[in-house]
Design a protein around this nucleic acid. Structure first.
Lengths: 188, 188
DNA sequence: GCGGAAGTCGTAACGCTGTTCCGTATCGAC
DNA sequence: GTCGATACGGAACAGCGTTACGACTTCCGC
């Protein structure tokens, strides 16, 4: 059931209607409401599915490299996810539908993703690459990665791949450097 | 005309329909289409208005402090804008309406905002606070600020004001520090 | 086996949206 | 006064989310 929806979401956000989903699934419109109760419920399902996919992607990352490389790989995997699944990422992080305002659901949906971020940040802290409270650092790190990915997805980060890559690298190393233990020396 | 729309946008995104706008403006529905041509045109107008307001806010910032303080004030002003005008910021940076995909318009709309960012970043570069290409730095800086503001607006950055403030400060100083001229010492 | 009851499923309806057409009403020219 | 043009708004059309109702199936009791 949810598989047909994911396929439909991938063919565009505007085309995600109860009727098209019903037709795609060879079901009737009331059957959709039987399963999801609501259109918001349908979107919530692809929302959850998105976080599940993202969590799988991030969990599948190899853990053999050092903590700094692990952070970079994490950002890269996140970036790849939103670039390859733009509409899914849009549903997860923007709010393309006026109904469905996830509050509380989001906590449960993104918990695996959050855990991976916090865990990798904590590893980096214990290895001396970062310094500070792991939760705070993870929040900042995630917000940065999401901001960059959103900007790239909206083609706001540059026109050529070189520019985008360069800016990703620039900001990422800068943020990690600045969050490192040596930052005290430059803060006024 | 556009004033009534801005008022309407402030009372919620879901309530922004051609009929409600017409009623609010004491006009008929076809009159709306006469003026804006399209619902996308209407949204585009509030989109432009949003960037105009943001540009005014940022341009009104005092320029008497140092380049580093100017960057911090810029981020703070941006943050205040999206916190105080959440739905407007949503229209500007998310895509709550499936129609109206600004491509090319955005360049013209955000040009003033972009210029202010680039200018302040350039000042910081010339003062030795930051190091590198000003455009690249401005892109990264803006993406970070937008990511944090979006996260805060979605209540994803923390529950208490102390946490949110602390994380803003943490990431901001870290990013500026890392983008500074000393960052070479820590990049592997 | 047969009749009725219960349950399931889809058609069609309702109110809403964006969008447009056409009737009407107003106004200027002769 | 009459006629033409022009502008304006009510109402219609298609499509959306949502739901009620009717038809068809299925199953149980006799």
């Amino acid at each position: 059931m949810a598989s047909a929806l994911a396929l439909l979401a991938e063919e565009g956000v505007a085309g995600l209607t109860t009727r098209t989903v019903a037709r795609r699934a060879d079901a009737s419109v009331p059957a959709i409401y039987e399963v999801f109760g609501d259109k918001a419920g349908l979107i919530r399902e692809v929302f959850f599915e998105g976080f599940r996919l993202l969590g799988d992607d991030l969990a599948a990352l190899p853990a053999d490299a050092g903590p700094l490389e692990a952070l970079l790989a994490l950002a890269e995997a996140f970036r790849r996810f939103v670039v390859t699944r733009p509409v899914l990422a849009q549903i997860m992080f923007s709010r393309p539908f006026v109904d469905f305002d996830p509050t509380g659901d989001e906590d449960k949906a993104g918990i695996k993703v959050r855990k991976i971020f916090v865990q990798r940040v904590r590893n980096a802290v214990e290895a001396g690459v970062l310094a500070g409270d792991a939760t705070d650092l993870a929040h900042v790190f995630f917000a940065y990665v999401e901001g960059m990915a959103t900007a790239e997805s909206a083609r706001r980060l540059g026109s050529s791949k070189q520019s985008v890559d360069r800016r990703w690298r620039l900001g990422l190393t800068a943020l990690i450097t600045g969050l490192g233990p040596a930052r005290r020396t430059r803060s006024k």
